[in-house]
Design a protein around this nucleic acid. Structure first.
Lengths: 126, 126
DNA sequence: TTGAGTGCAAAGGCTTTGCAGTGCT
DNA sequence: AGCACTGCAAAGCCTTTGCACTCAA
C-alpha cells in the first residue's frame, strides 16, 4: 500500500474542482503551495505524471511551449489569445463527427486530438 | 537591399516543392545541407523565422515538443502516430464551419488554429 | 527494514541569442 | 565602409532524472 502523498492528494483535489481549466506546472505548484504550504516542482511533475497514467488528468498542448494539464472527463477545445496568452474554453467538441471520416481517409486509428484556436480575446481587441 | 542568402533561398525553394509536408529544424538543416552543401542550425532557424514573418511559412505544433514548419497556403490538419511519430495529412479543413460559432460563443476574434489528431498509423497497427 | 514520496540540484533537449568573421553592394 | 548573412558557441527555458533523506507500513 502506498504511503500518504500530500502533494498528489492536493492535486487530485484541485482537479476535482468544478472549474474545469488547464494548469501549467508552475500554476499547479503555486496552488499546491497554497493548499499544503509546501511542495516542489519536481514532486508536482511526478505527481501529475502518475495522475496522467491513471487517467485522471490529461496533458494538453496549447502551443505556447508549456505543458498544461486538465482533469480528464468533459472534453473540449481551447482558444488562446495570441497577445496575452489568456485561455478560454470552447464549449462542446467540434470534432466528434470528423473522426470517422479522417480514419477512413488516412488509415490511422484515431485515439485523440489536440485542437487549439488562436486569436484575440475581447480585452485585447478593445 | 538584402544581400543574397543561400540558406534562405534553399529554404524558400524547399517550401515551394509540390509535396506539402512539415519540417523540423533538423530536417530543414539536413535538406539545406544536401542542397547547398552547408548551413547551420541557427542560420536555418533565423531564415525560417524571416520566412514566417513574411508569411511564407507557418510554424505548426504537432505536440511532440518539436517546432515544425510548413509552407503557408493550402491549410490542413495533421495526424501523428503515437508510436512512431509518423505524420500524415488530413485532406481538407474540418473546421471552416466551426469558426463562426466559436467566435460567437467565446468572444474571441479567431485568427488561426492548430489541430493535431493522434492515433496509430497503419504500419504500427499491424 | 523496505520502499513510496519528497526536495534539491543537476542533466537534457530544443529553441534563441551574442558575437565576430566574411563577402556582397 | 556598411550591413546582411553565417557559424560557432553559449545562454535560456522547461521538462525530466539522479540521489539521498524521511517516514509510514
Amino acid at each position: 500500500m502506498p504511503r500518504p502523498s500530500p502533494v498528489r492528494d492536493a492535486l487530485r483535489e484541485l482537479f476535482e474542482r468544478p472549474e474545469h481549466r488547464t494548469w501549467s506546472l508552475e500554476e499547479l505548484l503555486g496552488e499546491v503551495h497554497g493548499m499544503i504550504g509546501g511542495g516542489d516542482y519536481s514532486t508536482v511533475f511526478r505527481a501529475v505524471a502518475v495522475l496522467e497514467e491513471h487517467g485522471h488528468v490529461s496533458r494538453v498542448d496549447l502551443g505556447d511551449g508549456l505543458a498544461r494539464y486538465e482533469a480528464s472527463g468533459a472534453h473540449h477545445e481551447h482558444v488562446r489569445c495570441e497577445r496575452c496568452g489568456q485561455v478560454a474554453e470552447v464549449p462542446g467538441c467540434v470534432l466528434a463527427d470528423a473522426a470517422e471520416a479522417i480514419e477512413a481517409s488516412t488509415g490511422f486509428r484515431l485515439r485523440g486530438h489536440s485542437l487549439v484556436f488562436s486569436g484575440v480575446c475581447p480585452e485585447c481587441a478593445s
